[in-house]
Design a protein around this nucleic acid. Structure first.
Lengths: 111, 111
DNA sequence: GTTATACTTAGGTAATTGCTTAAGTATGGA
DNA sequence: TCCATACTTAAGCAATTACCTAAGTATAAC
């Protein structure tokens, strides 16, 4: 049960390198070196970013032979997306109530 | 034209205090002290969190008299949500292609 | 005018982050 | 067997973060 942690998820996504890695993995699995290739950065740095992505549950990986293959784990992505949906739902609900209130009492408030 | 920065947006949301503040503001505007009230933390700390939320474009505020009123700015929220939508769209597209491929070539690959 | 309120500004500090280089460890190929 | 590949581990370092306390500055109320 990795994932479930919005702190780690959003923190992982706050870094442009890590976000690029997730974007890359959205297009399909990749090895660590493939993930590293577009970035002007040492491999250990990439591995550290990857570790954070795995800790957040956004990415999973498995090693076969000497190459580690990484892929996105949609669950954590969904969880974060849901957070936004909830916030928007609440905000919209509030605006709806406000609208109805204004419709009922077009000028002064009752209270 | 604030907002537009996913780095700042996700970084802002990575902190539980700031996320709680956004959650609170989704329910309606609030003053700085109201935002601070649920948190066991000094007011300057809250103000710093608020500054980051404003820098990210997630929250806007205006001061009238001696009270600053804060409210969420839906635009930045949408932008982040869109990022997730894109990632999911790409991942799904890929899985669709994979599915079709498997339908066409149920066992061995052609290549 | 005095005092309380609602922030605001200015430091300071311990912990965390995002890198780096150097030196491993397996695995696969010639 | 030797060597290249694909990571992995360890240690270190500058910058950033998330707080804090103390001391402001405007408003509002009395």
């Amino acid at each position: 049960m990795p994932g479930g942690n919005l702190d780690l998820t959003f923190q992982a996504l706050a870094d442009p390198t890590r976000r690029a890695m997730v974007e890359r993995l959205s297009l399909g699995p990749a090895s660590v070196s493939e993930l590293a290739q577009p970035h002007a950065m040492s491999l250990p740095a990439i591995v550290q970013h990857l570790a954070l992505l795995e800790a957040s549950g956004l990415v999973a990986s498995e090693k076969v032979g000497r190459v580690r293959t990484c892929r996105i784990a949609p669950a954590a992505l969904c969880l974060a997306e849901q957070w936004f949906n909830q916030r928007r739902a609440e905000a919209e609900q509030r605006l709806d109530r406000l609208g109805e209130h204004l419709r009922k009492y077009p000028d002064g408030e009752p209270r």
